[in-house]
Amino acid sequence: MADRADSVPGAGYEEQYEARYEERPSRTVAGAVLWRAGGAGSGIVLPDGCMDLLWVDGRLLVAGPDTAPHPAGEVPGSGFAGIRLAPGAAPALLGVPARLLRDRRVELADLWPAAEVRRLTARVASYGDPRAGLEELARLRTADGGLPDPLVAEVAARLRAGQGVAAVAGAVGLGERQLHRRSLDAFGYGPRTLGRILRLQRALALTRRGLPQAAVAAAAGYADQAHYTREVRALAGTTPGAYAAGAAYAAGSAGSAGAKREIPEPSGSRTTA
């Protein structure tokens, strides 16, 4: 599936897609990003807290929230389109707790009645661009009661801003255990893990801007550069230096055509490494 990062060109030391990657913000689904790509490459997808509804060679699938790097080619296909949903938005739309989809790519028919999925598959296929069909599907589900809990959106925003778990729990009026349970259903993991993932995405975005590693670590909120290095290894399976070198190469390779781009977080990703 596509990698999800933060709306900028450049990627990691291997490209997820060879070419023909495009994306744009959804006009009708708040916080969502629509994307398409010609086919999977040999890169990896990094965690970003997001979930995607995918169209792969005429099939509907769901990509759950990641806790570790995933190979870009784990879902085989020659053409991909998707709608990437912001952290916490997908469970209300899908009617499935995010914790059940953590680190998984599943057929939509495994989650919804087969007859309903066949009808929706035909509907998406009727659009010239499957992204438009996915966007309409998400819009209708949202209008039909699939709006995310405002508390969930606030939790994600506060964690993205770098607030600690205790501060977030106090701000939204929950105990830390309650917040953990709510976060498992909304994001697929607890608030501490989501905070680490969102902090990593902040750091990688700064790296793609060319900042030195020590400056990235300080600006993103790590205790020191060693802490930043450990987190990149743990969550991205690479090193800050290797990622920075790959991002510089990818930015140069993308050129004016915009190919070999990385996909933004709205969801969610995220980044190739």
Rank of each mutant, 00 (worst) to 15 (best):
Y21L: 15
Y21E: 14
Y21M: 14
E22Q: 09
E22H: 13
E23R: 10
R24S: 13
R24Y: 10
R24V: 13
P25E: 10
P25Q: 07
P25Y: 07
R27H: 09
T28M: 01
T28K: 02
A30H: 07
G31R: 00
G31K: 00
V33C: 01
L34D: 00
W35V: 13
R36P: 01
R36D: 02
A37I: 05
G38V: 11
G39C: 03
A40E: 09
A40T: 06
G41R: 08
G41H: 11
G41P: 06
S42M: 11
S42I: 12
S42F: 09
G43S: 10
I44P: 00
I44H: 06
I44A: 07
L46M: 12
P47S: 07
D48V: 11
G49N: 02
G49V: 12
C50N: 13
M51I: 14
M51N: 10
L53G: 03
L54M: 09
W55H: 08
W55K: 02
V56G: 03
G58Q: 08
G58P: 01
G58A: 09
G58M: 14
R59N: 14
R59E: 12
R59K: 15
L60R: 03
L61K: 01
V62M: 08
P65H: 05
D66K: 08
D66M: 11
T67F: 01
T67A: 15
T67Y: 01
A68I: 14
A68G: 14
P69K: 11
P69Q: 08
H70K: 13
P71Q: 08
P71F: 08
P71C: 13
P71N: 13
A72V: 15
A72G: 09
A72E: 11
G73H: 05
E74Q: 13
V75H: 07
P76D: 11
P76M: 10
P76A: 14
G77W: 01
G77R: 05
S78L: 06
G79H: 09
F80P: 06
F80Y: 13
A81K: 02
A81D: 04
A81T: 12
A81Q: 03
I83K: 00
I83L: 01
R84S: 08
R84W: 06
P87M: 04
G88R: 01
